[in-house]
Design a protein around this nucleic acid. Structure first.
Lengths: 266, 266
DNA sequence: CGGATCACTTTACGGCATACGGAGATGATG
DNA sequence: CATCATCTCCGTATGCCGTAAAGTGATCCG
């Protein structure tokens, strides 16, 4: 299921998200409204960044469903409650993780050679980020709390599309569609990969077992779903790798979209 | 977050999914391997369908995060544990809900008039289903356990695309892209709608507050993200409705894709 | 030094899915 | 009719979860 982010206190979340990027704000944030004095009490033993990175590491290896405040704390040699000094709640932590993971992107896309290779490079960059951090796809992207790295992904896509000089009413759907395609394909890929890893059976094995089962339970399948049956039958039997399949689907979808776009831009 | 389905016992799940559609299999399923005899013990007070419908009703009104076995049981005047006689676990229940909700689709799309109106009608049908059952978008669609109603959605899209006579290597990405577009747009719409309902503030209010906050925390935003700033500034200030916006993005994306498709089909 | 203030821990609460065992209903069998 | 196996459903318990509340001890200011 999708975990919804961006629902904590927006001021606090935004402050944390943009914290490192405007130094005086960060200092102000760290010390509250006291300025020039050091606070009593023990020094902080953790940092927000350490927490974010521990949480991301945990999600990368164990998956989002294993991400708990206790587990993150343990990874840092602290209790679950220790994190609450740094982060208002788990929701905000997920928002911070989400933004931070997008720092992986290179933002280096070919500038000459036209729209197509640049858009493909952007999509590939994002695709790789999603496959590295598949839990990103479990955090809804419709959330409007935007952090700097997330924003940078959009910005670099807009930079790539800029030469096409699309009006806003064209640009907006194009951007949305590109994000949806990459996310959807990456989700299919990540999930197929995870399923294979979880069950231990090979993809081919899994499919043949599944279809044998289905054939027994729904003997009229081929009559009820002739087109689906035909499509399934026409697969390149050599390639059951879900990641490669999803990637082919992505490339094909992008190609269609870019074909359509070129028709608009002339 | 996305809730992953399709991870229970596949045989059991598939049997439940296809149960109603092959009567003798359903009977066999109900009585185990005993045939022709009635079982001792009290009669069952519930049905799988009643449970599925109660669960869907709950998810529709209260959202996926409020869906619990206890709550579903309560809605049926039973305990949480009573459900486990009918359904192996919550995961399977979600799979069943997912499939059942897709029974909403009409599958009636214009047959004459070419590809475009038919594809748009299909997309509209699915979009409406998602907005009626927004929790569907929290269940990953990359799951490979397919039920009859889910399958019918794919089948009717394939029927719509059939006249174009695309080879499989073209058809597959097209189908994926169409699903991704509709799902992505619907998710944006549903989430925007939910956020507005949850916070109580109007969409416009929300946006102005958010951007004021952002302007304070990241005063260099416009310099760092010129394209994003420009795009945000060029919005039709009259229309903050997230559902309508997402729908416009969907229509634009579909248009691009169909333009690209027409180039292929000639 | 005394007290305020902080980071962090321990404990606790209510909620979750669900394993387990018991209670009672029902039909088949003697 | 009595017995018994079998079934549904419930009560309880276990071990998770997020996080509230209260306790502990370090640290700095006066």
């Amino acid at each position: 299921m999708t975990l919804y982010g961006g629902q904590g206190d927006p001021a606090r979340t935004l402050a944390l998200l943009w914290r490192a990027h405007s130094p005086e704000a960060a200092a102000e944030q760290a010390t509250g409204r006291r300025t020039g004095r050091t606070a009593p009490g023990p020094k902080q033993g953790l940092t927000v960044d350490a927490i974010i990175e521990a949480a991301i590491g945990l999600a990368d290896t164990d998956g989002m469903e294993r991400l708990s405040m206790r587990a993150v704390g343990e990874r840092l040699g602290a209790s679950a409650m220790a994190l609450y000094t740094y982060v208002p709640s788990k929701r905000e932590l997920v928002d911070l993780m989400y933004d931070h993971a997008h720092a992986d992107l290179s933002h280096a896309y070919p500038r000459d050679g036209g729209l197509r290779p640049a858009v493909l490079a952007w999509a590939d960059d994002l695709w790789n980020c999603y496959l590295r951090h598949p839990w990103l796809l479990q955090v809804s992207y419709a959330r409007p709390v935007l952090g700097p790295h997330e924003q940078a992904v959009l910005e670099s896509l807009l930079a790539v599309l800029h030469p096409a000089d699309l009006p806003a009413r064209r640009l907006r759907p194009t951007v949305s569609a590109l994000f949806h395609l990459v996310r959807g394909a990456a989700q299919t890929a990540a999930e197929g990969r995870a399923a294979a890893a979880a069950t231990g059976t090979s993809d081919q094995q899994w499919w043949t077992e599944r279809s044998a089962l289905l054939a027994r339970l729904a003997p009229d399948f081929a009559q009820r779903f002739p087109h689906s049956t035909h499509l399934a039958g026409s697969s390149t039997d050599t390639d059951y790798d879900p990641v490669r399949q999803a990637r082919q689907a992505l490339d094909g979808g992008l190609r269609l979209l870019l074909d359509g776009l070129e028709q608009v831009t002339g």
